[in-house]
Write a protein that binds this DNA or RNA. Structure first.
Length: 841
RNA sequence: GGGUGAGUGGCGAAAUUGGCAGACGCGCCAGACUUAGGAUCUGGUUCCUCACGGAUUGGGGGUUCAAGUCCCCCCUCGCCCACCA
């Protein structure tokens, strides 16, 4: 049964062999099975950038460990993977290396798949999704049209980042510190027609949904912050001498009597109409200055506040006062109404502006007990207080005033309470080639027409030029752009833009459930069985983009009746980043691929190393090699892991004959000596700790616990002369249990050893061991004895000893005695099973 | 500025509810076996002190018999958001 075993451990041969067996037997493919509870585990799929690095390895090893663990626990586990294959780098590579983005992408995918396999990840490759393939993005287009039909996709003119040198629109990611990534010219804003998804309509549900999912608090906080709900009042201001009015939004209606000026965003449409002829040049000067700024500079808090007077005045609807109207660089067109009422006494930005332009400051909220001096104050008073200078509202606490003034505005129909969100609609259009073509046509007669279902997918043309300048690359393909209107048969042009790649990642978890189905995006039965995703693992950087978009998308599908849940991911876990020299390891900052470690020490060692080096949720510092000044290609700590695996291997190799499958039959009834009992106790204590720590995603301590067990087994001597000796029974249990716990972390070595020992070949599905609490219970305890909180002695006592006996033993302990002689004992604290503390004076 | 996480030996770190600070591992030191191999095994390793002993979880205060852990103030670092009206 048992076969030959080399004394030395050669991971390379073993690992290749098992990877091939797993592939050939399709071992990790999951099918629906109503007899088992399902577990849908997903990690965030990778962008095929070329090589995996240790950031990926950390993410995907966590995933593989949890998926394997859940499989051992009896779940029907689906653990798929795929590639987020559209995106900008492929296009840049195309321009730079004269290679088609598709070829570059597919080459990288092939390489990364090889690396995934070499790590021994148990993916269900049959369910793989590659987003740049037509059978996937066809459904992006179909969903887009469904959203359009529901009124959730719409077209709007809006400002985009524009590089005047490249003559092209840029994605936000291409704008680095206000500079075009490619040509290093400053980026400006330009108005363009773009497609948007109405995510703002789901703001309230996105907030409410947080209650139904168990996600980390910080991610929920980030999303809430991003959605940015604020309650306030929106009300109208008339312009003096005009029939025009404009609306402002404020969260501080209680300060309305303190308004001393108004500010419009420089882009506000009313500016042209109200600016007086004397002020035109000044206003135009500021407008062009602001237009030149990039969005990033514009939004910088430390940007000097600048404004220009329009020459017009507005009428305060509450008291009829006239206040000047300015434009200023600190008011944004795309939040609220693009206009604000300015209360310098109680808003810091307004205060700075008022001081600079010599605008009066009127105090309307007085802090409790003191008076403010409008001339002397050096900062706005933003807290609550009592209303002053506010007509009939004087004397009220400001929070009451808030409500009363809002009531009055509603009664007099000046304005009403509203809620504003920071969240903006999701801009889907990208002036890029390597993405999903937007399936919309523009007919001269019929206007905007969606591509009919039977013409999907709209494929990407190959007769395009990657010049890196001019318009969206698709416009260079005449064969793509010109088509026929499905309504009237006349000439139509296609939308030249492609979709944001966040569209691709908003539903890939649904496609994993039905990867091959052709006539719909997924089968309802598959979704019903597998969804929602039980655990989703990935980086925190996706907190406010991908993870909001995917939730919105699922809610929208729910409302269309396509799915019957509205939260896609029940549980979320964020692994920490891998840093090198304190900076995040990424392709740009010198990422280290796993190849050297895998080649030298094997995938099992690589997997354990990355799990052992830091708690999974926290930052892990990879380390800089002092010899090169660069991140280690092979970090020194890997030696410890290699030793650990080597010791396990040698222990089995040297004692192979001692291991007997039949240990199970006798372990419960055997009379054991203290050494045997101690080993068995440690085995079961380890099972309990390991299980508990895997459940709480604390893998570093899991590995430490297994190392401790190995140390315990190492110091235990089995009897190799008599393989039937009783001592070999707990030894066999210990070694088998260690291996079974190790298997999610180091599956290759465990498969190999199990095969050698003749343990069931269906290893990945072997049940997870259960720790016996009774066996794990200690027989005696070492109790610290403190005097005044200082450790003075230790006592070994039997478990369950009563308080009085313990106190007695402590007081009679020789090394304690010298600290309590000649002083009076104030108090004795005895915590059963924990400690004794004698307080003396 | 807002949010959020963190700060423990030479290094990575451990310590579910307040109860022996430093588990486990790296590195280092000593030894064993080897006729120097970066293999393996054994012992040691927070700091100060020859020692007795003392100090110690970023700093300072507090609560408690007892604080890395709870409370208050401060410092430093990471990440996310950021003139949001």
């Amino acid at each position: 049964m048992s076969r030959e075993m080399n004394d030395r451990y050669f991971p390379q041969e073993i690992e290749k062999k098992w990877q091939q067996i797993w592939d050939e037997t399709n071992l990790y493919h999951a099918e629906m099975n109503e007899d088992k509870p399902k577990y849908y585990f997903m990690d965030m799929f990778a962008y095929p950038s070329g090589d995996l690095h240790w950031g990926h390895i950390r993410n995907y090893t966590i995933g593989d460990v949890v998926a394997r663990y859940k499989r051992h626990c009896g779940y029907n586990v689906m653990h798929p993977t795929g590639f987020d294959a559209f995106g900008l780098p492929a296009e840049n590579a195309a321009i730079k290396r004269k290679v088609h983005p598709r070829d570059w992408t597919m080459m990288n995918i092939a390489n990364m798949q090889k690396q995934f396999r070499a790590m021994g990840y148990g993916y269900d490759w049959q369910r793989s999704v590659v987003t740049c393939q037509p059978d996937y993005f066809k459904w992006n287009q179909w969903f887009f049209i469904q959203l359009f039909k529901k009124g959730l996709a719409y077209k709007k003119r809006s400002a985009v980042n524009w590089c005047p040198d490249c003559q092209t629109a840029l994605a936000n990611e291409q704008v680095v510190d206000g500079i075009c990534e490619r040509c290093e010219h400053p980026v400006v804003k330009r108005m363009m027609e773009q497609w948007y998804f109405r995510i703002t309509e789901y703001a309230e549900r996105l907030l409410a949904g947080h209650d139904n999912i168990s996600w980390p608090d910080d991610i929920v906080a980030m999303q809430k912050n991003w959605i940015g709900k604020s309650q306030g009042v929106e009300f109208a201001w008339k312009i003096n001498g005009h029939d025009k009015a404009f609306r402002v939004f404020t969260t501080r209606p209680d300060t309305v009597y303190g308004v001393t000026f108004m500010v419009l965003a420089p882009e506000h449409p009313l500016v042209d109409e109200i600016t007086t002829s004397e002020q035109i040049s000044e206003v135009q000067k500021l407008r062009s200055e602001v237009a030149k700024l990039s969005e990033i500079d514009r939004a910088a808090t430390d940007l000097e506040k600048k404004g220009a007077f329009t020459g017009a005045h507005a009428v305060n609807p509450m008291n009829g006062e006239l206040v000047p109207i300015y434009i200023a660089n600190y008011v944004m067109m795309d939040y609220g109404t693009g206009a604000i009422m300015a209360v310098p006494a109680h808003d810091q930005r307004d205060f700075e502006f008022a001081r600079k332009y010599d605008i009066p400051v009127t105090i309307v909220i007085a802090p409790e007990g003191t008076d403010l001096d409008a001339f002397k104050m050096t900062a706005a008073f933003v807290a609550e207080g009592n209303m002053v200078n506010s007509a009939e509202f004087d004397g009220m606490p400001s929070d009451d005033g808030w409500e009363k003034i809002a009531d009055k505005m509603e009664e007099t129909e000046i304005g009403n309470r509203t809620i504003n969100y920071r969240l903006r609609d999701w801009c889907i259009s990208r002036q890029r080639y390597w993405g999903t073509p937007i399936p919309m046509l523009y007919c001269e007669k019929c206007g905007i027409v969606p591509v009919p279902d039977e013409q999907l997918p709209v494929l990407l043309p190959d007769d395009i030029e990657f010049t890196g300048s001019g318009q969206s690359p698709l416009t260079t393909s005449e064969s793509f752009m010109n088509t026929t209107c499905p309504n009237c048969g006349g000439h139509a042009r296609r939308d030249a833009d492609t979709m944001d790649t966040f569209m691709d990642s908003s539903w890939y978890f649904l496609r994993y459930c039905s990867p091959q189905v052709e006539d719909k995006p997924f089968n309802p039965e598959d979704i019903k069985y597998w969804m929602p995703v039980d655990m989703y693992v990935g980086g925190r950087e996706h907190a406010t983009m991908h993870l909001i978009y995917a939730r919105f998308f699922t809610m929208a599908l729910h409302d269309m009746g396509l799915v019957d849940f509205d939260e896609p991911f029940t549980r979320l876990f964020n692994q920490g980043i891998v840093t090198a020299g304190g900076k995040k390891m990424s392709k740009r900052s010198g990422a280290v691929p796993p190849n050297d470690v895998v080649n030298d020490y094997g995938a099992d060692a690589a997997r354990i190393f990355i799990m052992f080096m830091a708690p999974a949720g926290e930052r892990a510092e990879w380390g800089i090699d002092p010899a090169t000044g660069k991140p280690y290609t092979v970090p020194p700590g890997i030696e410890g892991i290699a030793r650990f695996l080597n010791r396990i291997w040698r222990m089995v190799a040297l004692n192979k004959a001692v291991y007997r499958l039949e240990w199970r039959d006798s372990i419960e009834v055997l009379e054991m000596g203290p050494l045997e009992r101690a080993l068995r106790r440690k085995t079961h204590q380890t099972i309990i700790k390991v299980t508990h720590d895997i459940e709480r995603m604390q893998f570093n301590t899991v590995i430490a616990a297994m190392m401790e067990l190995l140390n315990e087994i190492s110091s235990f001597s089995p009897d190799s002369n008599d393989i039937y000796a009783d001592v070999n029974v707990p030894w066999s249990e210990a070694i088998e249990m260690l291996l079974r716990m190790l298997s999610p972390f180091a599956p290759h070595i465990v498969c190999e050893i199990f095969d050698i020992l003749g343990i069931d070949g269906d290893m990945p599905y072997l049940p997870w061991p259960t720790g016996d609490v009774k066996v794990a219970a200690n027989e005696s305890l070492e109790i610290p004895i403190q005097v005044n909180g200082k450790l003075r002695s230790k006592l070994v006592v039997p478990v369950g000893i009563d308080k009085d006996t313990m106190q007695e033993l402590a007081l009679n302990d020789d090394s304690v005695k010298k600290y309590i002689e000649g002083v009076s004992i104030v108090k004795i604290i005895v915590v059963p099973g924990k400690l004794v503390n004698i307080v003396v004076k």
